[in-house]
Every structure is written in structure tokens, then in C-alpha cells.
């Protein structure tokens, strides 16, 4: 009984660390696999193309609004 305890502890260690690493390695493999599939078959819509155009449109609108406001102000003055 006396000597068993520490050996038990080491057994736990081997089992525990083995499981933790196995789990994480499987997880890493699955993560890489999943990322590859997603990039291949479900690529994200090209966000880069959309974003600037919308902001440009917004900018144009803002510029138009400002010009209109200035014109209005001048007419009043």
C-alpha cells in the first residue's frame, strides 16, 4: 500500500498527459482539416471589394450633403 501511492500518481500522470495530448493533437488535425475545407469550398465573400466601395459611396453622400449645406448657408447669407 505504502509504495503503491506514488506509482499510482505516476500512472495518473501518464494516462492524464497522454489523454490531454491525444485530444489536443486530434483537435489540431481536425482544425487544419476544417480550415482547409472551409477555405476551399466556403470562402468568405470578398470583403475587401465591398467595404471600400460602400464607404466611398457614403463619403460621396457626405460630401454632397456638406456642399448642399454650404450652398444653402451662402444663399441665406
Amino acid at each position: 500500500m505504502e509504495t503503491n501511492l506514488v506509482i499510482e500518481g505516476f500512472k495518473f500522470m501518464v494516462l492524464g498527459m497522454g489523454t490531454v495530448f491525444t485530444f489536443l493533437i486530434i483537435m489540431i488535425v481536425c482544425m487544419n482539416f476544417m480550415s482547409n475545407i472551409i477555405h476551399k469550398y466556403f470562402p468568405e465573400p470578398q470583403a475587401n471589394a465591398d467595404v471600400p466601395s460602400s464607404t466611398q459611396k457614403d463619403n460621396k453622400k457626405i460630401v454632397a450633403a456638406i456642399t448642399a449645406a454650404i450652398a444653402h448657408h451662402r444663399r441665406q447669407g
Binding site: G9, F12, M13, G16, M17, V20, F21, F23, L24, I25, M27, I28, M31, N32, S35
Partner: peptide, 15 residues
């Protein structure tokens, strides 16, 4: 993903 191994190694602290 491979940095997950570091999270595993640190569990040596537990055992």
C-alpha cells in the same frame, strides 16, 4: 493551431 500543444504541456503542472 499548433500552439495548442503549449496549452497541453502546461497541464504537466496538474499531474
Amino acid at each position: 493551431p499548433k500552439t495548442a500543444l503549449l496549452g497541453g504541456a502546461a497541464q504537466f503542472g496538474i499531474f
